[in-house]
């Protein structure tokens, strides 16, 4: 019970900090928008071509954006010297991770919801008919990105060259998420859309595996 109340208190803190400045959200949205526009120059964005390349492009943009967005997650605590205070205020350090990864998932989903319609219009790919399923994939994928990303940002925050290090650690680790979510999204954006259960199940398994790993090893990541 205390894990839940701790988590929700910390989650409130994370959301308050972000919504006061909205720094992360605005920069991430602009970054993804930039990637989407720049990608249009690398191939001929007709409807058929967009269906082929669009899903991968979209997830690659999300992944790169996430690897930048997750930077300040623990760095902020470190520069403000608030990590020890955080650790003392909770019984289980897992609550810190749970709060941060929930906040990161929410931020990612928010930027994705903002950019999905723009992507759909620019690349001429209708998303409305499969919106419900698309939200499920976005949720499972973003959750996986946030779980692994939150754990690794706790590592990279304690190293040199941290801005470069986080993408280097995170992106190879997220290969399974990229493959599975791209495949599921491609199936949904197909002219005759279908739900690829295999991919959805795979994403769920990834989330559960890494959440368990974080639960088991998270406390060591925050050792002073």
């Amino acid at each position: 019970m205390s894990l839940l109340s701790n988590t929700s208190a910390l989650l409130g803190k994370e959301l308050r900090t972000e919504f006061r400045s909205r720094e992360l959200l605005t920069t991430t949205v602009v970054f993804i928008l930039m990637v989407i526009v720049l990608f249009s120059f690398t191939f001929d964005p007709t409807s058929a071509e967009s269906r082929r390349f669009g899903p991968g492009l979209l997830w690659l943009a999300f992944l790169f954006a996430a690897s930048l967005m997750l930077q300040p997650c623990f760095l902020r605590e470190q520069t403000n010297d608030t990590l020890s205070a955080l650790r003392l205020s909770v019984d289980d350090p897992f609550a810190i991770f749970l709060a941060k990864l929930t906040a990161n998932t929410l931020f990612l989903l928010l930027t994705e919801f903002l950019l999905l319609p723009i992507f759909s219009v620019l690349y001429n790919v209708p998303v409305l008919p499969v919106l419900g399923w698309l939200i499920l994939v976005l949720f499972l994928g973003s959750l996986g990105v946030s779980i692994a990303g939150t754990a690794l940002s706790a590592i990279s925050a304690q190293a040199r060259m941290r801005e470069l290090l986080l993408p280097l650690l995170l992106l190879p680790l997220l290969t399974p998420v990229l493959v599975a979510s791209t495949e599921v999204t491609a199936a949904l954006l197909d002219p005759s859309p279908y739900v690829q259960w295999k991919g959805i199940g795979f994403l769920a398994v990834f989330d559960v595996v890494f959440l368990t790993a974080l639960w088991l090893f998270g406390e060591y990541l925050l050792e002073e």
Partner: peptide
């Protein structure tokens, strides 16, 4: 030692998932 050990554990857990994901598709 500690942080790289933890990353090593995450990386090793990831390996079967990488194999599975790529092999399936």
């Amino acid at each position: 030692a500690l942080l790289s050990a933890l990353f090593g554990i995450f990386a090793f857990i990831d390996v079967p998932l990488v194999f599975g994901a790529i092999r399936w598709w």
